[in-house]
């Protein structure tokens, strides 16, 4: 079973994403911000990370830049999942090492095809 860390400051979004991912046979863990995600990844590197952009304490993009410098931090497939939906943000995410990008709102179809595209399914 593959693992996915869901990083979002909204409990509702984490719950919805978790339900979709568990249906796709992922084991899920949750983090409320970039700092918590960093701590989690330092202990266990997940196979996938679904990542919000705007969060308190540490944003998603800052977390991603740090993650990619960590030992083993190049491994997880990172899929952004954010309301930021302009080209500039998408390009910034890709150059920071994101593998895919989902613009909210999302549904299970979108998550499934995006995860399939980066080879997680």
């Amino acid at each position: 079973m593959k693992s996915c860390l869901v990083v979002d400051d909204s409990r509702v979004v984490r719950k919805v994403a978790r339900r979709i991912l568990e249906e796709l046979q992922f084991s899920c863990a949750e983090a409320e911000d970039g700092r918590q995600a960093m701590e989690y990844c330092a202990r266990t590197m997940p196979d996938a990370i679904l990542l919000d952009w705007n969060m308190p304490v540490m944003t998603g993009i800052e977390f991603l830049r740090r993650l990619r410098k960590m030992t083993g931090g190049g491994e997880p497939k990172v899929v952004f999942c954010t309301t930021e939906n302009d080209l500039a943000h998408i390009q910034e995410a890709l150059s920071a090492g994101a593998n895919e990008y989902i613009m909210k709102p999302f549904d299970s179809d979108i998550i499934q095809t995006k995860f399939a595209q980066v080879g997680l399914l």
Binding site: D86, L87, I90, L94, T113, K114, Q117
Partner: peptide, 20 residues
Amino acid sequence: TQFEVQRGLPITLLVKHFKQ
């Protein structure tokens, strides 16, 4: 729509070939 470009289209192709 944003919904349509997310169904099946890899983000790299969206960035490469589409304009907002």
